[in-house]
Amino acid sequence: MTTTIAAIQTARITLNADPDLLVRGARGPHDRSEFLLVRVSTSDGVEGYGEVSATPLWSGEDGTTADHFIRTLLAPALTGQPLTPVAAAEDLMDKLLHGNHFTKAGVSIALWDAFARTLDVPLAVALGGPHRTEIPIKLSLSGDDEQLERAYAAARAAGFEAFKVKVGLDLPTDLHRVRRARELAGPDAFLGTDANGGWTRAEAITAVPQLKAFGVAFLEQPLEPRDLRGTKAVRQLGLPVIADESVFGMHDLVDVIEAEAADVVSLYVGKSGGPGRAVRMAEVAAAHGLPVLLGSNGELGIGAAAQLHVAAAVPRLSSYPSDIIGAHYYTEDVLAKPLDSDGRRVRLGDAPGLGVTLRDDLLREFR
């Protein structure tokens, strides 16, 4: 008998960032996040969980819009449909709802979780992996002077040894921040930079030689997302460039590849529209010689677990640490048991599906 989607429920939650680790980037501060948790129940009694990790400043989506579209549009259309192939459900969501990548990804994560639990295998296996069971991670550093020092101290206390510094606000201040971060971290620590598209071409070209002098490993998204020609020019200065905001879906990825505008692609489960699509994008990137890493929109435990399984399943993962920060960024965790992360790496378990369970109080919030 075919397993079908029996019900889709949601629960909303808002969490505050750890004030010491609060990210201040070119797009503004990320001090709190409203999330929508998604539960898919199947006709076989299996449940899968997902997470809509979206902020209006970043994607134009939030918990309110996600809840509205899932309840009024996606859930009615998906209920009664076969659970597999999950790609068919994703295609149906695309026909019903334009854009809103993070909203559809939240449902997709829950569908993939339910599918992997039905098979009684970890999601990474259902996605074609795992190719690895440990993923190195890093944490963003931002703010100036005392703020930066507090952020670094909190990151080290959490076990982090690899970092990226937020830049793209004001070039002289940006360079001062990177210099101070290097002083704090020491000459041998892994250190990257992330401009979030905040620099002009002239600023990026001016910054690169100095970033190289500071021993910076990479420059993430130096220019606004569609300036691929300018990004290629920056890349030719010899500092590896990571494409992030430039790549949401497959079409964006192809544009970046054709423009030769990146050395590494930062994939998000949310931007990609779900775990399966993220892995397919990674396969295309690998076929063109581009490794990927898992970027972060400040995901919670469910979203971080999805990041982990995708990172384990992609064929070519960058040697640069990914941004699977999960419970480290917020003042509380949503999982009954946190991911196995010590700040240096996060480890894949062998439990089925995402391999995580929400806290009991949150499980009671679904409706």
Rank of each mutant, 00 (worst) to 15 (best):
T133Y: 06
T133A: 11
T133L: 07
I135M: 12
K138M: 15
L139D: 01
L139S: 08
L148H: 00
R150W: 00
R150T: 00
Y152C: 01
A153Q: 12
G159K: 02
F160A: 03
E161S: 13
E161P: 03
A162F: 04
F163V: 02
F163A: 02
K164G: 02
K164W: 03
V167S: 00
V167L: 00
L169I: 14
L169V: 14
D170G: 11
P172M: 15
P172N: 12
R179V: 01
A181D: 04
A181I: 03
A181C: 09
R182V: 07
E183G: 06
E183D: 14
G186I: 08
P187M: 09
D188I: 04
A189I: 01
G192E: 02
N196Y: 08
W199I: 10
W199C: 09
T200C: 07
A202I: 07
E203C: 09
A204R: 01
T206V: 13
V208Q: 04
P209M: 07
P209Q: 04
A213G: 10
G215N: 08
F218R: 03
Q221E: 14
Q221R: 08
E224P: 09
D227S: 11
D227Q: 14
L228I: 15
R229A: 15
T231L: 06
A233G: 05
Q236N: 15
L237F: 09
V241A: 03
I242S: 02
I242E: 01
A243W: 05
D244Y: 05
S246H: 12
V247T: 08
F248S: 10
D252G: 10
